[in-house]
Design a binder for these strands. Sequence first.
DNA 1: TGACTTGTTCAAAT
DNA 2: GATTTGAACAAGTC
Length: 262
Amino acid sequence: MPELPEVESFRNYVADTSLGQTISSTRLSTAQMLWNTSAQEINEALRNNVFTSTFRHGKFLFIKLKQRGHLMLHFGMTGDLLYYKPDVLHPKAYVLLIRFSNGNALLFSDSRMLGKIALVDDIETFIKERGYGPDALTISKKEFINLLRKRRIAIKTALMNQKIIAGVGNEFSDAILFQCKVHPLSPANHLTEGQLAIIHHAMLKILQEAVHVNADRKKLDHYFLLNKRKAGLPCVRCRGKTAFKTIGGRSSYFCPDCQQLY
DNA sequence: TGACTTGTTCAAAT
DNA sequence: GATTTGAACAAGTC
């Protein structure tokens, strides 16, 4: 599922393939994923425009337009991007198809259509208005502690809340808390500042490493609970059995033997 | 067949 | 008013 590292990888992909080319045409297969905009607006904003740079905040990708504003993409659960030559490859379903004057195309697909597409004038205003927290890769230790230490909700729920910290999703939150030996149900305000600092450190380490390997999950197998998500597996640390619980409405896995509940 | 999955939002409860 | 909870959304997989 696209969490921060996957979206960062999509950002690099767009930066490597799609900048500096004039957009000759666009096609939108559905208006279902549009946010505060219409198909006509998207088409008009993109046609004859040029992507000039990319930016990411949390799980949101922004592609700057030469003329005005940014195209914003959110990948939901199943969003994907493909840059290709239309005459060579014919992908099945698409949500937004962007054709460039050099003959290539960038295709945004999302089988479950839980993603979002929008036109955003100013990124900072967008983030502020919607109330998203600081990006998980750049948040300072101090800021992290201040945002979490008074929350009464489970630490896992807090980590996943994009309005507190933007970028961490279900799977990475489990991996982060396992590394820190903290039980996901521990209320955030029961943790000491020292413990929160450790969680902050683990979060940065895992996310940075995941970004470094382009979110290739196969190269992240050493982070327990990231790829192997099943109750009853032997814990790699203490040989206890991993447990399953729904936390914050999401399926969560953890080791009840070595992740302490505070 | 239907239960389960996820990121996000919204409405309701505290 | 701020914070928290839980349902809803969609559609693919098992």
